[in-house]
Nucleic acid binder design. Structure first.
Length: 504
RNA sequence: GACCCCGUAGCUCAGUGGUAGAGCAUCUGACUUUUAAUCAGGGGGCCGCAGGUUCAAUUCCUGCCGGGGUCACCA
């Protein structure tokens, strides 16, 4: 970067850096030993017995300065929180003047003793301090005011969404609630992994680069392998590979990983997103329903110490059992007609009557899907299993054991969005081939999202897959729900953005 | 992809057809228990980019870039 582009604050910091180097002070040292964290000190300081904290060493980023001549206070932020640090000229005869060359954003280590100030704040009284990293560019400096009731009022908060997403590291420094969201995300994923491991299932990793993409209906990202000179696709789902592992004799396999879909981005969609998929041999979708109920119920209990959460101001209960309802019963309830028996032309008329806009060549599946997602889905607030979908919507699900035209599939809806999708997995290779052929016809008619025939997958089914229950959970949406976030971008550390313009 | 809103100092934001203002941050000075520290003084802006209208544009118009939102597409 051209030096002329630096503003006064950045120039000043470079001068300070030079000052430290000329003084023989390393501005970027190699390590520092801490004995305590901010949180530990704040939680454990005892006014009647300060001795245990009479010699602490902490490290963190300077977030505020209050300089008062021969005394200075600043707030030091480490990963656990913020603690006030006190510097007194009398106690730091040689070093006190160095404080002048420190800025908000610098990282320092502080050794000293803990005491409580007149104003009642637990504070580290500095005996010695060390520069650990000179920050050369200023960060936003929101100020936090606490009113008499203890409510926190944040002034000059860093709110520009574009900058917050592009410079997530700054967002994380400055907006503590963002750190909490991602801690909770990690906790959720860790809980799920433990839960599945404890049930004895095997965590596996399947290819992200795939010669044939499958397992969902979506447009893929295409890439190229130079040595093999072939195009490969980034996976849109794990499903077909995990089922191959069930064929291989593992009786419970799961994967938590990224999928990639080359489609629109909005509040609910990011091009790469995290999914859990799990397949368990000898089980059907009724068993999977109980699994989902128990997994989510224990997850919520573990994180909230309650089976109720609040999302967008609404109390959501994860008490078992969740509601279960047949998709076509919902249609009857909301539309007043049994849609199962209707043909494409009748469905089209009904959709028009409901005021839905449909493309001219909409097939039966698209119309049903449209009616469901527009009219019914937004009303599914409390956890609700919707089950028994039309066969055309679900090319990898097993035909219903008693209801013609339907498959054994359910989806779980909470707060109007889909959290889980599960089937009794189709394991009849003859049927699977026919379903793929149906998809090929849709593709021929211009449906770019229709599935592609995967001969090797059919071959695997011919080798033989036991009856299997399968499940997919959108982890990002689950995290949104459990952290009360309205946009998927707020639960993904580095959401997809357009290229950064040069002038930013 | 369509439509609506937004883009002004490091951050949060005002404002005007005559090339800009506040608070915080920053700099100088004062201040040895402050906490949105305070007090006094100073510096800092291609007003997103490009073009047009105009004597004159940051302001009005058009296009572009970036962001947010709604819809479409999509689980």
């Amino acid at each position: 970067m051209d030096i002329n582009e630096l503003n006064d604050q950045r120039l000043r910091r470079r001068e300070e850096l030079k000052f430290f180097e000329e003084k023989g002070i390393e501005p970027y040292p190699y390590s520092y030993s801490t004995t305590h964290t901010a949180k530990f000190i704040l939680e454990n300081f005892d006014d009647t017995n300060p001795a245990p904290l009479s010699n602490v060493s902490i490290a963190g980023r300077i977030m505020t300065f209050r300089r008062m001549g021969k005394a200075t206070f600043c707030d030091l932020q480490d990963e656990t929180g913020r603690i006030q640090v006190y510097f007194r000229k009398d106690d730091l005869p040689e070093m006190y003047d160095l404080l002048k060359y420190l800025d908000i954003g610098d990282i320092i280590g502080v050794e000293g003793f803990v005491f409580r100030t007149k104003m009642g704040e637990i504070t580290v009284h500095t005996r010695n301090f060390t520069l650990l990293c000179k920050s050369l560019t200023p960060i936003p400096v929101p100020k936090i005011e606490e009113d008499e009731k203890g409510n926190k009022i944040v002034h000059d908060q860093f709110t520009d969404k574009e900058l917050r997403y592009r410079r997530r590291y700054v967002d994380l420094i400055v907006n503590s609630e963002v750190r909490e969201v991602f801690r909770k995300r990690a906790k959720i994923i860790s809980f799920i992994r433990n839960y599945l491991d404890n049930r004895g299932w095997l965590e596996v990793e399947t290819p992200i680069l795939q010669p044939i993409y499958g397992g969902a209906t979506a447009r893929p990202f295409i890439t190229h392998h130079n040595a093999l000179d072939i195009d490969l696709y980034l996976r849109i789902a794990d499903e077909l590979y995990l089922k191959r592992l069930i064929v291989g004799g593992f009786e419970g396999v799961y994967e938590i990983g990224k999928n990639f879909r080359n489609e629109g981005m909005d509040r609910m969609h990011n091009p790469e997103f995290t999914a859990l998929e799990i397949y368990v041999a000898y089980k059907d979708y009724f068993w999977v329903m109980e699994l989902v109920e128990d997994l989510l119920n224990s997850l919520v209990l573990n994180i909230f110490n309650s089976d109720k959460i609040v999302y967008n101001g609404t109390i959501i209960s994860f008490e078992k059992p969740f509601q279960k309802v047949d998709m076509f019963d919902l249609f009857t309830k909301f539309i007043g007609e049994d849609l199962l028996s209707k043909d494409e032309i009748e469905l089209f008329k009904i959709a028009k009557r409901l005021g839905l806009e449909l493309p001219e060549n909409s097939n039966k599946v698209k119309i049903l899907d449209e009616i469901f997602s527009e009219i019914i889905q937004p009303t599914l607030i409390q956890p609700t299993f919707v089950k028994d979908y039309p066969i055309e919507m679900s090319p990898l699900a097993k035909k219903h054991r008693s209801k013609p035209g339907l498959v054994e599939r359910f989806e779980l809806f909470i707060c109007g969005f889909e959290i889980a999708n599960a089937f009794s997995e189709l394991n009849d290779p003859r049927d699977q081939r026919e379903r793929f052929e149906e998809q090929a016809k849709l593709r021929a008619k211009g449906d770019e999202e229709a599935m592609v025939l995967d001969e090797d997958f059919i071959y695997a089914l011919e080798v033989g897959m036991p009856p299997t229950g399968g499940l997919g959970i959108g982890i990002d949406r689950l995290v949104m729900l459990l952290t009360d976030q309205k946009s998927i971008r707020d639960v993904i550390l580095f959401p997809q953005m357009k290229l950064e313009p040069k002038n930013l």
